[in-house]
Amino acid sequence: MPLQQFTDAELQAKAEELGLVKPGEPIPTAAMQSRVKAAVVEDRRATTRQEKPADARLAKSIVVQPGGVILIDGEPMPWLVAKQPMDIGLNPEGISTVRLTLLAESVQVLKPKTDSPESE
Rank of each mutant, 00 (worst) to 15 (best):
Lys14Asn: 02
Gln84Tyr: 07
Ser96Trp: 02
Val81Glu: 06
Gln65Asn: 14
Leu110Asp: 10
Val107Glu: 07
Pro66Ser: 11
Asn91Asp: 15
Ile72Lys: 00
Gln33Ile: 07
Lys37Leu: 06
Glu120Asn: 04
Leu100Phe: 15
Ser119Cys: 01
Asp8Pro: 06
Leu80Ala: 15
Leu100Cys: 14
Arg57Asn: 01
Ala31Met: 03
Pro66Gly: 10
Met77Phe: 15
Arg44Gly: 10
Thr114Trp: 02
Asp87His: 08
Leu3Ser: 14
Gln50Glu: 15
Leu80Pro: 01
Glu25Pro: 03
Lys52Ile: 05
Glu118Ile: 03
Ala82Asp: 13
Lys37Tyr: 02
Gln12Val: 04
Thr47Ala: 14
Ala15Asp: 05
Pro85Ile: 03
Pro23Ile: 08
Gly89Asp: 06
Lys14Leu: 11
Ser34Lys: 09
Gln33Cys: 13
Gln84Asn: 09
Lys14Thr: 14
Glu93Ser: 14
Ser119His: 03
Thr7Cys: 07
Val81Tyr: 09
Phe6Gln: 06
Ala46Ser: 09
Thr7Met: 04
Lys113Ile: 09
Gly24Thr: 08
Ser34Tyr: 03
Leu80Gln: 14
Gly74Thr: 04
Ile72Phe: 00
Leu11Asp: 05
Ser96Glu: 06
Thr97Asn: 05
Gly74Gln: 09
Gln108Cys: 02
Ala56His: 01
Ile88Thr: 07
Ala104Arg: 13
Met77Thr: 01
Lys52Glu: 04
Trp79Gln: 08
Pro66Val: 04
Glu16Thr: 15
Thr29Glu: 06
Ile88Ala: 12
Val40Ser: 02
Ala104Glu: 13
Leu100Pro: 01
Val36Met: 08
Pro66Asp: 08
Glu75Leu: 13
Val69Lys: 14
Ala39Phe: 11
Glu10Pro: 12
Gly74Ile: 05
Glu75Gly: 01
Lys37Asp: 02
Ile72Asn: 03
Thr47Trp: 03
Gly89Trp: 00
Pro26Arg: 15
Gly67Glu: 07
Thr48Pro: 00
Lys113Met: 07
Ala31Ile: 09
Val69Asn: 08
Gly68Glu: 10
Val81His: 03
Glu25Cys: 10
Leu58Thr: 00
Ser61Thr: 13
Thr114Arg: 13
Gly19Thr: 07
Ser116Arg: 13
Met32Pro: 02
Ala30Ile: 11
Arg99Glu: 11
Thr29Ser: 15
Leu110Glu: 15
Thr101Arg: 11
Lys113Leu: 14
Leu3Tyr: 07
Ile70Trp: 06
Glu118His: 05
Thr47Gly: 04
Leu71Val: 05
Ala13Arg: 12
Val36Phe: 11
Asp8Ala: 15
Ala15Lys: 08
Glu118Val: 11
Gln84Glu: 15
Lys14Asp: 01
Thr7Ile: 03
Pro53His: 02
Glu10Met: 11
Ile88Trp: 01
Glu120Ser: 05
Glu10Phe: 04
Lys37Ile: 02
Lys83Gly: 11
Pro76Ser: 07
Val98Glu: 03
Val41Asn: 07
Asp55Ala: 13
Lys60Gly: 09
Ala46Pro: 00
Asp43Gly: 12
Asp73Phe: 05
Pro76Thr: 05
Leu11Arg: 09
Lys52Asn: 14
Ser34Pro: 00
Pro85Cys: 06
Ile72Tyr: 00
Lys83Cys: 08
Glu10Tyr: 01
Ala104Thr: 11
Met32Lys: 15
Met1Asn: 11
Arg99Pro: 00
Asp55Glu: 13
Leu90Val: 13
Lys113Cys: 01
Arg99Phe: 02
Leu103Glu: 12
Lys14Ser: 08
Asp73Arg: 03
Met86Ser: 06
Pro23Thr: 06
Asp8Asn: 12
Gly74Arg: 04
